[in-house]
Nucleic acid binder design. Structure first.
Length: 557
RNA sequence: UGCCCGAUGGUGUAAUGGUAGCACAAAUGGUUUUGGUCCAUUCAGUCAAGGUUCGAAUCCUUGUCGGGCAACCA
């Protein structure tokens, strides 16, 4: 554990934790929890919370619980539980024995509600949902008390018991905390704490006909687990008085809730509702579409857990609602990928090149370094012959001044394999497109003076691969910030996915899904889970930084 | 016309009454068998007005702007 007297905090939450450690507020314990509702997939915004929750426990020698906040059976599914477990593991965190379900506490919660009723601090209300809303008032107008508010305790108890046994229809009764209908905080105007739902619960089955509301359940979950610091996002700030009220009235163990700002990323939407809409409307191919900001989507795209954790460390924790540039995430990604990705050669937009001084049938070999950033990654042998493919963009018949690649009568280095000099070209007479580039090959020993290096694959040895070129999903920085009446989906990028058939070096035939690769001079890629040896499929994770694209004024992305 | 929270370069974030720093982005140059990486340099900031103080990003007041709160969702 970190020495409690040594200040190592980098943000206000850790300052609070360190202060609590100093004063012995929780006997030196640090217990946090990550409490997802299993009603959707985790996204990069959750990663920020996960890194904070688990990271805080790790830093201060405490524990972090993974707890499913499954208090609403209508929305929740087993499928999501499994996906969430997989994603948190993948991110690199370990909850040990501490996997919990809020639904396992339903009996205790019920007892606590009974206790509140007995204390005259809760009552069964007969108001319909519409009346409930009407009585609550609005921020600028006081609420008024429910006619049920002074129902005798015995009657409340009887009704609550019968609610539990399933005697009533949904919406017929609700249990409310008795607080203050004139509070300026709407959440304190006798909030509902239990409602009737005749729904089968994915974790506890048909045992219950009543389910606790978030505000009642969450503080109890934290209390039961002896959580010390209950970290959540800013929108729960106005709920904190209620969190405290319930624990105070029950006079039980009292964790402290601390709020921080959620993550917003440029060119991204983050809400579950909107992500669901993208999936349902077919704008993407499922929750794990590589364009999605979901953890499973990012994973399929080729993001590494390491990069995401580093990103979460870099953005910091504050109460200011910021919009983080997705370029920072991409920076963290490239930073990690550069260190670990195996270099390979792939030609995404091939054009044939004939090396006229290499006889037909002759096969040459060369040695290529797998990763210049990691000597341990070794080398590999590559074969080539008279005909190779090069990138169409690497040749220009009439090159501008700063173009360092191949052009008529010019020489360039062939990555790992000597040099070529362009001696001629053939064009399609109808379209004018270059069909064949002719040239001569020079061995690497010759040390030709050139300004550029291009990548290539051998026509005879290369294999075909499907390459999915992903780009950002939206065309504007903040898709949520649209004109009144406009649809945020109008800002979707119609070119967020382009599929091409590429020529790739044969070593790529058996690439394992997800393993980071760099297609040299192009970008980082990884094999898709759908990839097979017969039909390899690669996803573009992110481009390399491309200063030529800037010079040439191309979109580059 | 309610209550709560917030405001530091283009972006994100430090400085907790004592030299406004870091990262990303952008720009320039160097190295280079990836126009990648790496290295160097540059650009650029305390929302406003008062007050307290020898001294204010920091404390106080007022204002401005932004966000949140009116599910029997979480």
């Amino acid at each position: 554990m970190t020495d409690a007297t040594e200040k190592t905090a980098t943000h206000f939450i850790h300052e609070i934790v360190e202060e609590d450690l100093r004063t012995g507020k929780y006997d030196g314990r640090v217990v946090t929890r990550f409490p997802p509702e299993p009603n959707g997939y985790l996204h990069i915004g959750h990663a920020k919370a996960i890194c904070l929750d688990f990271g805080t426990a790790l830093k201060y020698g405490g524990t972090c619980h993974l707890r499913f906040d499954d208090t609403n059976p209508e929305a929740e599914e087993e499928e999501y539980v499994n996906a969430i477990i997989e994603d948190v593991k993948w991110l690199g965190f370990d909850w040990g024995e501490h996997l919990y379900y809020a639904s396992d506490y339903f009996e205790k919660m019920y007892d606590y509600a009974v206790e509140l009723i007995k204390k005259g601090k809760a009552y069964v209300c007969t108001l319909s949902p519409e009346e409930f809303k009407e009585y609550r008032g609005i921020p600028t107008r006081l609420g008024k008390e429910s006619p049920s508010r002074n129902r005798p305790v015995e009657e409340n108890l009887d009704l609550f018991t019968r609610m539990k046994s399933g005697e009533f229809k949904e919406g017929e009764y609700v249990v409310r905390a008795k607080i203050d209908m004139s509070s300026p905080n709407l959440h304190m105007r006798d909030p509902a704490i239990y409602r009737i739902k005749h729904a089968r619960h994915p974790h506890v089955g048909d045992t219950w006909h009543i389910y606790p509301m978030y505000d009642f359940a969450h503080c109890l979950e934290d209390s039961i687990e002896h959580v010390t610091h209950s970290l959540c996002t800013l929108e729960f700030e106005v709920h904190r008085p209620l969190y405290d009220w319930i624990l105070d009235e029950l006079d039980i163990y009292h964790p402290q809730q601390i709020e921080f700002a959620r993550l917003n990323l440029t060119y991204t939407v983050m809400s579950k509702r909107r992500l669901l809409e993208l999936v349902k409307d077919g704008h993407v191919n499922g929750w794990d579409d590589p364009r999605m900001p979901t953890l499973c989507g990012l994973r399929r795209r080729g993001y590494t857990a390491d990069a995401i954790r580093h990103f979460c460390d870099t953005i910091g924790i504050t109460k200011y609602e910021s919009l983080t540039d997705v370029a920072l995430l991409e920076h963290c990604l490239r930073d990690h990928l550069n260190k670990v990705a195996m270099r390979r050669m792939a030609v995404l937009n091939p054009v044939r090149m004939i090396l006229e001084n290499i006889p037909e049938g002759e096969v040459k070999t060369c040695t290529a370094v797998n990763n210049p950033e990691d000597e341990g990654a070794g080398t590999r042998e590559l074969k080539f012959g008279r005909e190779i493919y090069i990138e169409r963009d690497d040749f220009m018949e009439e090159p501008p001044s700063k173009f360092f690649r191949l052009a008529p009568d010019r020489s360039v280095r062939l990555r790992n394999a000597g040099f070529v000099t362009c001696t001629g070209l053939e064009k399609d007479p109808d379209t004018g497109a270059v069909t064949v580039i002719r040239g001569t090959w020079t061995a690497p020993e010759e040390k030709v003076k050139v300004k550029g290096t291009i990548h290539w694959v051998s026509s005879e040895h290369a294999i075909d691969a499907e390459v999915r070129i992903y780009d950002r999903l939206f065309t504007v920085e903040n898709p949520m910030d649209v004109e009144e009446g406009a649809d945020w989906k109008d800002t979707l990028n119609p070119e967020s996915l382009k599929v091409v058939t590429a020529k790739v070096e044969p070593t790529l035939a058996d690439a394992a899904a997800g393993t980071p690769l760099q297609f040299e001079r192009i970008g980082y890629f990884c094999a898709d889970p759908d990839s097979t040896a017969v039909k390899p499929i690669f996803n573009r994770t992110v481009t390399l930084r491309d200063s030529w694209a800037k010079i040439a004024g191309k979109p580059g992305k």
